[in-house]
Design a protein around this nucleic acid. Structure first.
Length: 225
DNA sequence: GCGACAG
DNA sequence: ATCTTGTCGC
């Protein structure tokens, strides 16, 4: 099958509609995850160059075990709802450099809390076959009430009458993050994992570390040609 | 029709 | 996403 990357918005939306049927949310995690991979992408100003990072962490300690990255040029514009077509190619490249298969993918963005129920986290989950979840930093299309102030408090993200995720307070008195499932994981599991991986900062360690790495690499890259 | 809109 | 210093608060 010749999988051609979508070029137009209409094509990309059709790809999402097709891929979303491969999302499996009927099964929980096989067991307590031992490792996770945090994923993120940094963009260079004034060029199309990007750095994608994939960082492997132990869940028990929330410490980094190994880290990889991939450099590339984006070929798809940022369109709300189509973020995956911009970042997935590079995230997959960085992931492949990780010789270990993580138990869960922690993505920077949304999973099913998406207009077509197929955000970046679902996309990566389906393409890799791995359990995945999304942790976004800002609201998107779902509605929510502010959760209580205490760390661990959460409130449902509602869209089109259905609960598609949770606004989760990872630190007391700090803005919530937005958790949604991507593939092969439950919402309660995704919430618990997010909290376990955010012992100190608002952003859970996996994506926080991936963000730091992608930024550092980008900063030390030779000037764009 | 208008507004809103992950990164 | 990215451009950007200091500053308020715990």
């Amino acid at each position: 099958m010749t999988e051609v990357a979508p070029v137009t918005v209409a094509e990309a939306e059709r790809v999402q509609e097709a891929l979303r049927r491969r999302v499996d949310l009927t099964i929980p995690l096989p067991g307590p995850p031992a490792t996770v991979a945090g994923l993120d992408v940094s963009y260079e100003v004034g060029s199309d160059r990007v750095v994608a990072a994939a960082v492997l962490l132990d869940v028990a300690t929330a410490r980094v075990r190994r880290a990889e990255f991939a450099v590339g040029e984006v070929n798809f514009p940022y369109v709300p709802g189509l973020l995956a077509f911009r970042e997935v190619p590079f995230l997959l490249a960085a992931l492949e450099k990780l010789t270990v298969r993580p138990d869960v993918l922690v993505c920077d963005g949304y999973g099913v809390a998406h207009p077509r129920r197929f955000g970046l986290a679902c996309h990566l989950g389906v393409l890799t076959g791995l359990p995945s979840l999304g942790v976004a930093k800002t609201p998107f299309t779902a509605r929510f009430d502010p959760p209580e102030q205490a760390r661990g408090a959460w409130s449902p993200l509602v869209d089109g009458g259905e609960t598609v995720g949770r606004a989760v307070r990872t630190q007391t008195g700090v803005k919530p993050v937005f958790v949604s499932v991507g593939h092969r994981i439950g919402l309660a599991e995704a919430t618990g994992l997010t909290l376990a991986l955010a012992p100190r900062y608002r952003i859970p360690e996996p994506t926080r570390q991936a963000d730091l790495l992608s930024r550092t690499v980008l900063r030390e890259l030779p000037p764009a040609g």
